[in-house]
Simulated scan of single mutants.
Amino acid sequence: MRKIILGATTLLLLASCNGQKAKIDPFKSLTNLVDSANEATDSIESDSVQEVPKPIKADETFDDFIFSFASDIKLQQKRIHFPLTFINGKSVSKIEQEFWKKDNLFTKQSFYTMIFDKESDMDLMTTTHLKSAKFEWFYMTTNKIKAYNFKRENNGAWMLSSISISSINSNQNENFLEFFHKFASDSIFQRSRIHEPLTFVTTDPDDDFSILETTMEINQWFAFSPDLPTVRLSNINYGQSNSDESNTKIVAMKGLGNGFSNTLYFKRQKNQWEFYKFEDLSN
């Protein structure tokens, strides 16, 4: 993963006629949790030592849980309803505990992504009243979704209740996953789908607690653009919609322990997706 770091000189050149607003990073708590999880030793992989079960906090958030679940095999075994229901289209089967292997979800990657239909959906990340949530993989080449479906028990514990694989229904409009796959892997196509000038939001070099909003030309985007995922997108679903009918999409990319933070904003114009806003809050 290539980290995007803009020098102060470049920022000042781009920042003419800019506005300022408070710096907001809705992914800060998630990243801190991943950093802590990645510092754990390999001893958690051993099944030879029996540990006292960890106490379950009634106010445990889904963010706290999902990273512990992905990094701790012993906790993972305790937080799955076995036999686990596995749904693949119309086929339903059961996975017995003895056949379950540790699933790291996205914690072994250098970054993760989150997908939203609109900016207001990002507020769901901070809610403390969730009863259900999902970790999802969106497969761009096959238009499939693999969802890990979690439910919160009466005692406050999050439990994996099922895993499901389903297809994304396409309509007459351009499918976003198909578009993003081509956008990420074909630079000529990408150039044709960028609004110019591209709105650009980045950290103020003179004030770490505020950001600048300006514009950049297409060639500047290609000079500073991150490496985009081309196979699958991860997502933590707190209840936000992810509809193919939506005419706006947000793809947030957050590094794991490397300070990388980029967000790409898209809108559908005349049945075609267009990239219109780029946010780089890397540090």
Rank of each mutant, 00 (worst) to 15 (best):
E217N: 05
R191K: 15
N143C: 11
L198E: 12
F138T: 04
E153H: 06
L177E: 00
T230E: 08
I194W: 04
T199C: 09
I218S: 13
Q172H: 13
L256W: 09
L177H: 00
G156E: 02
L177S: 03
L160R: 05
D206L: 14
F224S: 00
A157M: 00
S210Y: 13
S166Y: 08
G259Y: 08
P226H: 07
F200N: 01
I145E: 01
S187D: 15
F176Q: 00
K182H: 13
N173A: 10
D204N: 15
L212H: 07
A184Q: 08
T215F: 14
V201C: 09
I188N: 15
S225W: 02
Q172D: 14
T203L: 14
S225G: 00
I211M: 00
N237Y: 01
G259L: 10
Y148F: 15
N219A: 13
I211Y: 02
F138Q: 09
E153G: 05
N262S: 06
R193N: 07
N143R: 12
D227W: 03
A223H: 08
G239L: 09
H195T: 13
T199H: 11
S243Y: 11
K254Q: 15
A147W: 05
N258S: 08
N258D: 03
E174A: 08
N169T: 15
L160E: 12
T248R: 10
W137D: 10
S243L: 14
N149R: 12
N219K: 13
I165M: 13
W137T: 06
T141Y: 09
A252C: 06
E153D: 15
P205L: 04
E196H: 12
N171Y: 14
K151E: 14
M216P: 03
F260Q: 06
L233Q: 00
F176I: 00
S164V: 08
F222L: 00
L177D: 02
E245Y: 12
I194S: 07
T248V: 07
N235M: 07
P197K: 10
N143W: 05
Y148I: 07
S246M: 06
D204G: 07
A157E: 08
N262D: 00
N154W: 05
A147K: 13
F200C: 05
E217Y: 04
T203W: 09
Q190L: 14
R193S: 04
P197R: 07
T202G: 09
F180M: 03
T202L: 11
N258I: 01
N175R: 06
R193D: 03
N247Q: 13
I218M: 10
T230L: 01
N258H: 03
K249Y: 11
I168K: 10
F179Q: 02
K182A: 07
K146I: 13
F200V: 01
S164M: 10
A157Q: 07
T215D: 09
L228M: 03
Q240F: 06
I165K: 10
S234V: 04
I163R: 12
T214W: 02
N235S: 11
S166G: 09
K254M: 12
E245D: 14
N258A: 02
S166M: 13
N155R: 07
E217K: 07
F150Q: 02
